[in-house]
Design a protein around this nucleic acid. Structure first.
Lengths: 205, 205
DNA sequence: GATCCAACCGTACAGTGTTCAACTCGCCTT
DNA sequence: AAGGCGAGTTGAACACTGTACGGTTGGATC
């Protein structure tokens, strides 16, 4: 996980991990079936970092909001997570615990049966989708070596240039963004969609 | 793209692509800077497959629903897509067109300024998250070689076994699922969350 | 006919995940 | 005390990856 956090998804190789562990490269295969196996472990480890409050402490809606924000923060702390997760079925113990506690949250809201499952996985999917895009964005900024402000200015310029030809109203809309803090915008964006989703939940109770 | 669809994300290598093209392996590097470059092209190609209806034909809500379903279907047709996308910033022409048309849709709904952008990216994120998980699931089933029914039965058994010890109410909930068509469940799940999100949108107009 | 250049190719390099037979070392049994 | 067993480790090797680099075509231009 340290390797992944520091060097990105390509940074975790069996040999690099081995030297970090002070061991031979192939010794790892005694403890782990394959590299995918290893990744499933670190994935579950990440799931263990997000906390899902009990329904009593903040109500179902407050709890769901807290959970979503914690999940998002966890993903942004481990930006390789969405990319590694993509295309993998997850049933580790921490993932199970997360699912169970999230279900308790929405069960307290009043959902039962199918709808309960639907609400839980919709919420998780929304966070994963949003934070995944955000993580991708931040990684791109990081890899470019530029400062965030520089990168944003340049990207916006390119986007406007490209859009102006074929989609003038889109270019105009992007131009409107100048001078705003991109991190704050992302945060507000996340909160907006989350509130919409939870409003939809509430309307069904 | 054919290689990716047939053999999964690991199936696309420069050499395999070269023989499929009847060319030398390194000739590709004349047309493409690097493999990531190549992937950005196929990603944008995928974005080109999702259609975003005009607001007039089905109203903003009908259009958004159609868009979401088309997007989901596209992702399920190319299950490698979420994994490849994870950690990449996308500004290809098709992605731009998609963004522009999606904005037209929600602009017709009445959104303006920040909220317009928020709504669009929330919608996209929701679809990406949901369909991404679904694609992962289907890939896992496919790779196992088992039939869908077999796989589901076995996975449910394992999950119940694992859950029953620590999360009895979750195991009970999973057991309740027996005998349902998993594809239909996924589809209903998607529609449920989508409706919730769009309800939340509607409430803000 | 000479020049030029876009396009293509073979070789080579460093690095990847994984297999396999050999090896060490501590504990248990006789 | 001797022997054996098995958990844990290891280095060499294999097939493969993305890519840099120098050299090679074939056709257009002057």
């Amino acid at each position: 996980m340290e390797l992944l956090d520091q060097e990105g998804p390509a940074g975790l190789s069996m040999r690099k991990l081995a030297v970090k562990l002070g061991a031979g490269a192939t010794s790892i295969y005694w403890h782990v079936e394959t590299k995918d196996d290893l990744l499933e472990f670190v994935i579950d480890e990440v799931f263990g970092e997000v906390d899902v409050p009990d329904p009593e402490v903040a109500g179902w809606r407050g709890g769901a909001t807290l959970f979503a924000h914690s999940f998002r923060a966890t993903i942004l702390r481990h930006r390789w997570f969405p990319g590694v997760l993509g295309g993998r079925a997850t049933i580790g113990p921490n993932a199970l615990s997360l699912a169970s506690r999230a279900m308790a949250l929405l069960s307290a809201a009043g959902f039962t049966g199918f709808d309960l499952q639907y609400a839980v996985s919709s919420l998780i999917a929304y966070v994963l989708g949003t934070a995944g895009g955000e993580a991708a964005w931040r990684s791109a900024v990081n890899d470019s070596g530029k400062s965030t402000a520089e990168w944003v200015a340049e990207a916006r310029g390119q986007a406007i240039e490209a859009a102006k030809r074929d989609y003038p109203e889109l270019g105009e809309h992007i131009a409107q963004w100048t001078g705003t803090d991109p991190l704050a915008v992302h945060s507000a964006n996340f909160a907006f969609g989350l509130d919409c989703l939870l409003d939809g939940f509430a309307a069904r109770l």
